[in-house]
Design a binder for these strands. Structure first.
Lengths: 136, 136
DNA sequence: TTTACTGCAAACGCTTTGCACCCAC
DNA sequence: GTGGGTGCAAAGCGTTTGCAGTAAA
């Protein structure tokens, strides 16, 4: 679970910005972050960390398979720890809570798409939205 | 099928820009357009039509339920005639062809999402992507 | 010492908006 | 005549990039 070490092993340098962002992610549980949120957290620990650096660090962490990102239909990208338990996500338009869908659901959706359209490697980098039970 | 008339009935004015865009859409079959593509077509018929006007006209046509739009994960929005036969769409990352998924598939996906997450009114305004059969 | 990484600022692509003029009604 | 619609230009938003300076190795 030492992300900085993963970076090192893969030939990336350990810098303060990267350590800060890794620490935030390591302690995040399985929270979903916008880049802004992550930047805000990072700045609390080092006020010089730039938004561009956050973007670049996230790109690196995605490259070494620590995190993944998805896109919302409206609004910014969402970053979170890569997990073997989930693929697809859904966000409540009202309370903004993000729910991870079960991997089995993701698989069923991919199968449906494949059978209907004959496409392969269907992209899952977007976030469904709707209204959750509590908001109805 | 007279979109300009629909506009009138709903209290919107008929302007040249609106007529031009309606004509393009009426003759489009069930093509999927980016705003750029639609603007390029519109300019062929009246070189003064502005991109902003295209956006505003599309908003109006969506309001009166003639068209719908979806978002790509990367790139611009896609506009098309509203249809009772399809909901979800998938685009080939390679050849850019857009395929309409069967409404039954859309429904099954919505049901899966609903059962897994307990969300309702699941958004379908995005476009899946993948690689189509011909491109593999 | 070397060059990967950084902060900063500017540019990106798509979309929306403010405004004064114009024309459909 | 009135105000809804327009073209134009500028700004918006999230993201990416160019660059010269900095610091990890």
């Amino acid at each position: 679970m030492d992300f900085a070490n993963h970076l090192k092993k893969r030939g990336y340098r350990i810098t303060n910005a990267r350590e800060v962002i890794c620490t935030i992610l390591e302690n995040s549980g399985h929270q979903h972050f916008t880049v802004e949120e992550l930047h805000t957290e990072a700045v609390k620990r080092d006020k010089n960390i730039d938004l561009a650096t956050v973007y670049r660090t996230l790109e690196v962490l995605e490259d070494i398979d620590i995190i993944e990102h998805s896109h919302q239909v409206h609004g910014s990208g969402i970053f979170y720890l890569k997990s073997e338990y989930s693929n697809f996500h859904i966000i409540c338009e009202i309370c903004k809570k993000i729910v991870d869908l079960k991997k089995s659901t993701s698989k069923k959706i991919n199968d449906l798409l494949k059978n209907d359209s004959d496409f392969k490697d269907v992209n899952n980098h977007f976030i469904y939205s709707g209204q959750c039970k509590n908001c109805n």
